[in-house]
Structure formats: C-alpha cells, structure tokens
C-alpha cells in the first residue's frame, strides 16, 4: 500500500476538537489498523482516525499519510491514517460534507501550538450522582465556563428539528382542512343523490333517526375506507422517502416514521370528519318533507 499525501487547511482547532469529544464519548467503531500511542516515537508519524465519509472524500485508506495544519499558512505535520471508522449518526450533521479527523489530544495541542487548552470537556457521572447536580456545582465555580447536561445540549441542538416539526404540523393542518372540504363536497353530492331514496324510505315509515344513522354510517364508512387507503399510501411513501434520503445522505437515520399514535390519529380523525360530514348531510336531507324529496 503506497503512501499518499493529502493536504487540507485546518484553520481552527475548534472544529477538530469536536472529534476529540466524540472520541471521549466512545462512539463509533474502528475499522482497519488500531491507532498508535499518543506520543509516537521520534521518526514515526502520529496516528489519526478518519470517518468513512472523510476517507472517501480524501481518497485515503489506513496506512496512508495526510498532512494537517492549524492554519492555512502551515506549518504542516504528517500523520498516518491509523483507522477508518463509522461514526454515530447525528441528525444535525446530516447534510454536512466536511472532513472529520480524530487524533490524540496531545498531538492536537502540539499541532495547534497553543499549549494545554480544550474547547469542551465531557464528563461521565457515576451513579448515584445526578448529572443535573454536577452541572449546578460546576457552574457555581464560575471559572469562566458553562456546564450543561447532555439532555440540555440535545434540547438546544434539536431546535432546528422542532422547527421542522412545527412546519410539518402546519402543513398537516392545511391538508386536513382540504380533506375535510373534499369530504363535505362529496357528501353533499351523495346527499342529493340519496334525496329520492330517503324520501321513499320516510314515506314507507322508516324513522328519521334510522335514516340519519344510515347516512352517517355511509359517510363514516367512506371516510374509514379512504383513511385505510391513505394509511397504506402513507406507509409506502414513508418507505420511499426513507430509502431515498438514506441513499442521498448516506445515513441509516430514519426520516419518516408511521408510528401507532400517528396511525390512530389519522384513522380516528378521518372517522370523526366522516361522521361530521354525514351528520351535516343527514340534517340537510331531513329538513325537507318526504313528498318534496320524491319530487311531488
């Protein structure tokens, strides 16, 4: 395996330190050769680990050499690609195409030339200590940093997805509105078709209640049938969306999920709308006298 050199301008260590954080969290799996010791012997290049996507972008494999620098102007240091790993997938990073590199902290500090400094420290808390209590004590130290629990960070990082969720909810309100109007229009037409039948039924002595029940049942049945078809379409579309976006972003993330609550909400809402449309149609039908309905 020949050695290849790739050169990338690393202007700021902050971005690189994210990799350090991930390393501490112990995420991802290593593939290829294991990383070397933190302080390699003189004459050997220190090791780095690349994500599989980064390795593809740079066109390197374990054993190859890459050059890193903290600034565009250098100085450049050569590192050996010790491993290519598959990182944990974070939804916030789905469309990023940057290169991620992991190296030992000491090597990074040497590269940066800034001495002993990090951007963040990850802390694992041993039970029965509670993360929230630890965060409170750390923040009280007032050493010029802030501590957060993972839950806090996840919440902050999820803001974009909450916005997307709100957006989707707004769209779903619009589609529900359109469906309701659709159903009402169809039932209005069906009601007019049923006018004579209803008139004959009432002339025969069938009660208004029975007639209304029939109309409401018909409407609910139409809505239920429609919702079941819709659920099927939803499953199919969801599968297509996941397949497409997973391929597009090269990720195992789930983009669309038809969950039981979603399913129940869709079917339930359809039936409710159907019953409401049927009730309105029944009311309009039963307003008229039977003779009027049969056209006399």
């Amino acid at each position: 395996m020949g050695s290849r050199t790739a050169r990338q301008p690393w202007a700021r260590p902050a971005a690189v330190c994210v990799a350090f954080v991930a390393l501490l969290l112990g995420t991802g799996t290593l593939r290829g050769h294991a990383a070397g010791p933190a302080s390699p012997a003189p004459g050997t290049d220190p090791p780095v680990a690349l994500t599989d996507r980064s390795a593809k972008i740079l066109g390197v494999v374990p054993g190859d050499r890459v050059e890193l620098s903290a600034t565009a102007a250098g100085p450049w240091r050569t590192f050996r690609v010790a491993a290519v790993y598959q990182p944990a997938v974070y939804p916030t990073e789905i469309s990023r195409t940057r290169v991620d590199v992991r190296l030992h902290l000491a090597d990074l500090e040497a590269l940066e030339g800034g001495g002993d400094a990090v951007d963040s420290v990850v802390v694992r808390v041993r039970p029965p200590a509670r993360p929230a209590d630890v965060v409170t004590r750390l923040n009280a130290l007032a050493l010029g940093f802030r501590a957060y629990t993972s839950a806090d960070l996840a919440e902050r990082g999820s803001t974009t997805f909450e916005v997307i969720a709100r957006f989707h909810r707004a769209i779903s309100v619009v589609t529900i509105l359109a469906s309701s109007v659709f159903l009402l229009a169809i039932m209005t037409l069906r009601g007019e078709e049923m006018r004579r039948q209803v008139g004959v039924m009432r002339l025969m002595g069938i009660s208004r209640r029975t007639v209304a029940a029939v109309v409401v049942l018909v409407a609910a049945a139409i809505a239920l049938a429609g919702s079941l078809v819709g659920v099927g379409l939803g499953y199919g579309l969801s599968a297509l969306i996941n397949a497409y976006y997973r391929r597009l972003f090269d990720t195992p993330l789930v983009f669309s999920a038809v969950t039981t609550p979603v399913l129940l909400a869709a079917v339930g809402l359809s039936v409710v709308l159907g019953v409401a449309a049927g009730a309105l149609t029944a009311w309009r039908l039963l307003r008229r006298r039977p003779l009027e309905q049969v056209g006399r």
């Binding site: 619009v174 109007v181 037409l189």
Partner: peptide, 19 residues
C-alpha cells in the same frame, strides 16, 4: 346549478391550490 356544492369544491381547490 348547485351553488353549495360548487362552492365547497372551489373552497377545497383553494386550499390545495394555496398549498
């Protein structure tokens, strides 16, 4: 001929057209 029905259909199309 059927103003209510036509109005409902047009309303439904307004919503889908707006989307």
């Amino acid at each position: 001929r059927h103003p209510v029905r036509t109005a409902l259909v047009v309303l439904g199309l307004c919503v889908t057209g707006a989307l």
